[in-house]
Simulated scan of single mutants.
Amino acid sequence: MADRQYIVESVQQRLREVVPDLREETLDADKDLREFAGFDSLGVLEILVWLESEFSLVIPDEELNIDNFSSVGKMADYVVDHR
């Protein structure tokens, strides 16, 4: 099982690949990603598909709420809680 810090770093790296606006940003775990124009519906979808693949998750439709995935920390917490 991956520890939370590894998950945070993995998510940060993937976000920088998916959302060009984030390449030069310091991605604190609690930073609300909705502040970045590049973190749009397509960016959210891409990161969710990656989370499922990378961490062997299935995110049920009823949990597909942007509030659950609006920051790196929330994504990491979701992965930790659902593995």
Rank of each mutant, 00 (worst) to 15 (best):
L42P: 10
I66G: 01
V72C: 07
T26C: 00
D3M: 01
E63H: 15
L64H: 11
F69I: 14
K31T: 09
N68C: 02
V58F: 15
I7F: 02
I7K: 08
L33K: 04
V44M: 01
S70V: 10
E24L: 13
D81P: 14
N68R: 10
R23F: 09
R83T: 12
M1F: 07
E63R: 12
P20C: 01
G73F: 01
G43Q: 00
L45W: 05
E9G: 10
V18L: 02
D40Y: 14
Y6G: 07
L33I: 04
D61F: 09
R23M: 10
Q12K: 02
F39A: 08
D28G: 08
E25C: 02
I47G: 10
L33C: 13
T26G: 00
R83G: 11
W50L: 11
F69W: 08
E35A: 06
D21G: 09
R16H: 00
D28Y: 02
N65I: 14
I66P: 07
E25V: 05
D61Y: 12
N65F: 00
D28Q: 04
Q13S: 12
L48Q: 00
V80E: 07
D61N: 14
N68W: 03
E46C: 06
M75G: 09
Q13L: 07
R83V: 12
E17P: 13
D67Y: 11
L64K: 08
H82N: 15
V19T: 09
D81G: 12
A2C: 03
L15N: 01
E63K: 14
M1D: 06
L48K: 05
R14I: 07
F39P: 02
S70F: 03
E35M: 05
D30E: 09
R14S: 05
E35T: 04
D3I: 06
G73T: 06
S70I: 08
D40H: 12
Q5D: 07
L64V: 12
S56R: 06
V49I: 15
L57F: 13
L42F: 14
M75T: 06
P60K: 13
G73V: 04
I59A: 09
A2D: 06
V44P: 09
